[in-house]
Design a protein around this nucleic acid. Sequence first.
DNA 1: TATGAATGAGTCTTCATTCAT
DNA 2: CATGAATGAAGACTCATTCAT
Lengths: 203, 203, 203, 203
Amino acid sequence: MQTLKADIRKRILTQSRKLFLEKGFRETTTRDIAERSGVVLSSLYRYFSSKNDIFACLVQPAAKSLEDLLERHHNSDLNDISIIQSDNYTEVTLNEYLDAIQRNRISLKLLLLKAEGSSYAGFKEEYVNRATRMVLAWFRSMKAKYPGMNTQVSDFFIHLNNVWMFTLLEEILMHDLPEDETRSVLLDYIQFEYTGWKKMMKV
Amino acid sequence: MQTLKADIRKRILTQSRKLFLEKGFRETTTRDIAERSGVVLSSLYRYFSSKNDIFACLVQPAAKSLEDLLERHHNSDLNDISIIQSDNYTEVTLNEYLDAIQRNRISLKLLLLKAEGSSYAGFKEEYVNRATRMVLAWFRSMKAKYPGMNTQVSDFFIHLNNVWMFTLLEEILMHDLPEDETRSVLLDYIQFEYTGWKKMMKV
Amino acid sequence: MQTLKADIRKRILTQSRKLFLEKGFRETTTRDIAERSGVVLSSLYRYFSSKNDIFACLVQPAAKSLEDLLERHHNSDLNDISIIQSDNYTEVTLNEYLDAIQRNRISLKLLLLKAEGSSYAGFKEEYVNRATRMVLAWFRSMKAKYPGMNTQVSDFFIHLNNVWMFTLLEEILMHDLPEDETRSVLLDYIQFEYTGWKKMMKV
Amino acid sequence: MQTLKADIRKRILTQSRKLFLEKGFRETTTRDIAERSGVVLSSLYRYFSSKNDIFACLVQPAAKSLEDLLERHHNSDLNDISIIQSDNYTEVTLNEYLDAIQRNRISLKLLLLKAEGSSYAGFKEEYVNRATRMVLAWFRSMKAKYPGMNTQVSDFFIHLNNVWMFTLLEEILMHDLPEDETRSVLLDYIQFEYTGWKKMMKV
DNA sequence: TATGAATGAGTCTTCATTCAT
DNA sequence: CATGAATGAAGACTCATTCAT
């Protein structure tokens, strides 16, 4: 009996996922969702408190995994420049990104591409800003350690790189890049960035 | 009378520009526009055929200048690799971009950041796709000319770089970067890209 | 089983009482009641035929005691003016009121202050009207007996005094006046009314 | 042309007044109002920002006149006990009340009897509380001047008298008491109160 | 008899656009 | 050509009550 309830919930989530994916949060109506889920409109509200709530459920895993990534990667205490220059850094990083993407493809897609109108609309910007602040802090701490580092790099350019990382994510999702291609693009990206930064910072 | 009419049109455009800038296309209502322009709502439709039409007028210069850039830069007939490697290529390119931005700041801002809900919502994607196709064509023609070039670069990565260029634009506009900073960021960008690509293509 | 059933009924009544008290009849939803009672929504309807029915159960003792009071006090056959003028009339009356209030505080509170939206919403008005009719009848019969009585007092003013009595009740309940204060206020009230009426009727 | 607009507004106000009067704020739907006013539902919102707004327009004169009364009558600086005992005090007061009532019958009726569900629902209680505070202040200042005054009167009883005044108002309105009867009831009321208070305070 | 699910009518509000004078 | 008025479709959310197992 409880299974039934869970079933309907799942059905609603499945169908709304489809709809959000097709038309985005804003253009998807609660009626759409209800009809496609084979429920009466009012029943929707037995399972979720609002349209936004449904979206939140679908999107939360992605949001969580991104937050985790942020935590791990931009913590200035943990990541010395030596780590970044270490041989397997690239690979480790790469795998983490890949993991996050593979695990939450659709959820991420919703979060980053279809959230307009929902409470997650500003997620990307907020996230990028936080990430940028963390990177900036890391930069400053590195400069304290290695005074020879190039100081020329503007805050804005650092911000920009964070945005690009997101853009990369978005594009991978938008084009449903298969796993192997995703991996190869990520490799390219990391190499590209690495080369660029090395030159720029004259490390 | 004709003058008056033009005046009113201008007023509508000025005020709606402000509103679109503040709240975006979707959140701006026709009533807002009419009131701020000192016109009755129905009069709006004497001067413009729809809300979208108003937006189009405001956004068209930016769209045009981007189209022009596309034309000039990604035309495989015109740009041989030798040009890219020429000394002043960077500067020329830089100036063109700067020009386009400076000339159409607000219009671009509307087009790239505030178009949600309008017929221009998909502009960026479309544009990037076209640009990518052109770059790909150029790449292929280059490969035909210089068979030694690295073939490894995926189509997607090229696409990505196009998107990044847009992202750069968007961020410059979003943060109202002043001209000098814009220039310096663009320089960084070009250098960054140049380094990255050179390495990647083993040119 | 029968015991269980009674238990559940009691639980529903207890919890709905709380809710009605907090938020009033209208703002209390059947779902609220069910959840707080630890029953499934549909089970509510096994124990009560409707939301209004639940309210009725809670409110009925108060309604009953008020009806009783009405019966005893405004029965023109029973109360001669001589009784009213008797020494202990005040005290007797006072105690009756006090009793009714003390016995049914919460029930009265629901009936008089929280019934909006229920079938008891009009209770006060109806009751007052009936009471007024009875008092009027009593007045007429008194006038028949004692023709010297002042006739000037309007029907409306008598009605008004009945309403005031209710208002008094409402305020005592609304402010959760403790028993001793309730007693003292009632004393004030009776004295106040008594003085007023004596003057007015030139008894 | 502007007349037309005003006309519709007036029509909406007239019809909604009727409806609110019949069924109260809550039970009156915007659709009701629109239909009875011969307007499309959406047009309602061209003239008023919400259902509550319509109600507010209807009710504001009454609210204003009550506030004014409060201002004039419970200002402890202005009203010495000597004024209250003066010969024409009663008449002046009486006329003021009458005026307020006559001028705003329907508006008052809505405000005091039909506001449930609107933003004016708590008006009465708020008002009474403010009035009570003012009267209490007045009492204290009188006691300072005339220390012989009875102190026994409880705050609650004073509060109660304020509520009664309101109850009086409500009943007058509820029963559509004609002007002359209203006057005579008010006279009774003032006399009644006066006698009661004199006794109570042993003035 | 208990439970999960279903129901359906209803409520306020918004907005771009068109009509009639 | 301007203006006031009209339009109608749409959208999110609520709630008491009933059904089917």
